[in-house]
């Protein structure tokens, strides 16, 4: 694998549209796939699924808890419901229903959380999910995904549609930076290796993947080679690849559009603590609620940029060297 310089180009298509394309395609193949909305169809971009399959689309209204358990009931009868709301509501308002009606009951429900983290922008702190993975990660049997771009999103949906599982996928609604070439393949639970390097491992998900790749180029300019993983499956974590990377590079930085507690950084820290303790740092939101502002402003404000990842990389490399 040869490292090429990363250019951050936004996709022409909003991520919610890539999602809806994938849902329609899955719906064409499997007539039991249903779309459940909670009065956020316009925001989540599910209108085209409804236009294509009006009899398989239900906008239940502003009742997330009910929607989640109803989806579980639909699954009892063999349907495959995809439930849509903002990440704050899909996680926090549905937490008990996801636990009992879906996971504990062993059913097949797909949950989508829109406006992930800073992408909630001017909807502000009440709508800015920095804890959705944290809320759901300790529930047995709930898989957590955060695709980094439209290619990853389009690849993931048919995979999870074919499996009997409780899955939560978070996404921004708008356009994100392209990471993958069309046709790239993804296996749920397997992190993608995006860049080889011996000096430090950067592990990111979602919109932080492009920042990690930019950080790797900045570091390369200083002669530091970073290994970059897109950990689009947060739960179950790809422990083998995380541990192997930590062993190869001796230090790790995680980067996520989420609180450092409960999400990717926590998951990686737990895995490394048990299997391969190496110096590590977590880039993410620390001890703060969200607030209003553009996504760009919020990424600067919460320190979610390539330069923040670089500084953390320098610190872990120093700690690694001090130990040698």
């Amino acid at each position: 694998m040869k490292n090429k310089l990363f250019t951050a180009l936004p996709d022409e298509k909003d991520m919610r549209d890539a999602y809806c394309d994938a849902l329609i395609a899955a719906g064409e193949k499997n007539a039991r796939i249903l779309a459940i909305d909670c009065d956020l169809s316009a925001s989540m971009g599910t209108g085209r699924f409804r236009a294509r399959f009006p009899e398989r689309s239900f906008n239940l209204g502003i009742m997330e808890a009910n929607a989640c358990s109803m989806a579980a009931g639909l699954s009892v009868t063999g349907f495959v419901p995809f439930v849509h709301s903002f990440a704050v509501f899909t996680s926090r308002r549905m937490a008990d229903q996801i636990f009992l009606s879906c996971a504990y009951a062993g059913l097949n429900v797909k949950l989508i959380g829109g406006d992930a983290g800073v992408s909630a922008a001017t909807n502000g702190g009440t709508h800015m999910a920095f804890e959705d993975f944290g809320v759901l990660r300790s529930i047995v049997g709930v898989r957590l995904f955060e695709p980094a771009d439209n290619v990853a999103m389009r690849a993931l949906i048919p995979k999870i549609a074919d499996e009997c599982s409780v899955d939560y996928i978070r996404m921004p609604r708008r356009s994100v930076v392209k990471i993958y070439d069309e046709g790239e393949s993804f296996v749920p639970g397997e992190a993608k290796l995006l860049r080889e390097g011996e000096d430090v491992t950067l592990i990111a998900s979602g919109v932080l993947v492009s920042e990690a790749l930019l950080a790797a180029d900045l570091l390369a300019a200083e002669g530091i080679e970073a290994r970059v993983l897109d950990c689009f499956t947060i739960q179950p974590l790809d422990i083998a690849r995380v541990v192997e990377s930590a062993e190869k590079t001796g230090c790790v930085v995680t980067a996520e559009n989420h609180n450092v507690i409960g999400g990717l950084g926590s998951a990686v820290a737990e895995a490394l603590g048990e299997h391969m303790p190496v110096p590590m740092e977590r880039i993410g939101v620390r001890n703060s609620f969200g607030e209003v502002g553009s996504q760009a402003y919020l990424m600067d404000h919460f320190g979610l940029r390539a330069k923040d990842i670089c500084s953390a990389a320098h610190r872990v490399i120093k700690r690694k060297q001090a130990m040698q």
């Binding site: 001017t122 909807n123 502000g124 009440t126 607030e291 209003v292 502002g293 553009s294």
Partner: peptide, 13 residues
């Protein structure tokens, strides 16, 4: 309203 650092965010606080 809705500017960074505002005391008037889109939702009541």
């Amino acid at each position: 309203v809705n500017r960074p650092g505002t005391r008037l965010p889109s939702h009541c606080d």
